[in-house]
Design a protein around this nucleic acid. Structure first.
Lengths: 135, 135
DNA sequence: TATTACCCTATAGTTTTAGTAGATTATCGA
DNA sequence: TCGATAATCTACTAAAACTATAGGGTAATA
């Protein structure tokens, strides 16, 4: 399941991408248009800013705005920040690798074998989609 | 994240597939070999039996065994029973479709667009892998 | 001084991952 | 046939983790 955090984050990025070039957009406006709990969205936008996707401005006329061009934001990085590892099992994760404590040998593990394919297929999609592509 | 339920279920199926043609295998044996909590595994095997993957025999010499040939067990059905919908969002699910209450129009939804591709790529993998393939 | 992002905390709800206790059923030996 | 034993089956409970959201106050800026 995709968490609402990721869903809302993606929607917010999309919203900001469509408002590209204009003034900063306020949290309240995004929350209203996308039917998102404002407080929840607040924390999501914060993590997006901290991870280099967004810039912000305080005070009147303030808000959030995209830092980079939508075409330069691959879904891989967005998903890793919002949803976490792309792999469904740590033992097949590129960026968050961890050995399974119950599994003695990855090479003969059926779960490993299957999840490796799932990871690759997901990576393939995320790598071939930037924010601009899903607008 | 893949739930432990699914992970253990897959491992159990693998174990039983390798013991194919022999006597029923006891829960305790599988649990021991795969480092799984026996009681947890018990409930997992039960749902696998109820969904037509396994047969069981009580009493001495009893246990679980595969009903079908591993080559006739596609991962799609296994994953749906153990993990639930393959889609990460209900609005792109084939078997568990549900409309998002926050999203007014699926056709213009960026999340929908992306998750549709993810679903298809995952389906592609699961459809091309039977239990026999991941042994 | 009003407006807006920022930050910290708490919490209800749900899901996951089991553990406990016992009932039920089949086999086997006496 | 009877009872001991071995195994699955069932239901209830519970701890832990995670999710989604709310509240209230602080800091910066026009």
């Amino acid at each position: 399941m995709l968490s609402k955090k990721t869903k809302y984050g993606l929607k917010a990025l999309t919203y900001l991408a469509r408002a590209k070039g204009k003034e900063p957009v306020q949290i309240a406006e995004i929350a209203k248009h996308e039917n998102i709990s404002q407080k929840f969205l607040e924390s999501i936008l914060l993590t997006l800013r901290r991870n280099g996707f967004l810039g912000s401005k305080k005070g009147k006329g303030g808000g959030y705005y995209l830092i980079k061009d939508p075409a330069d934001i691959p879904m891989t990085t967005v998903m890793r920040v919002l949803e976490g590892p792309i792999a469904m099992v740590p033992c097949v994760s590129l960026n968050f690798y961890e050995k399974c404590d119950d599994c003695p040998d990855e090479d003969t593990c059926s779960v490993h074998k299957l999840m490796l394919q799932i990871r690759d297929s997901a990576l393939d999609v995320y790598r071939n989609n930037t924010l601009a592509d899903i607008l």
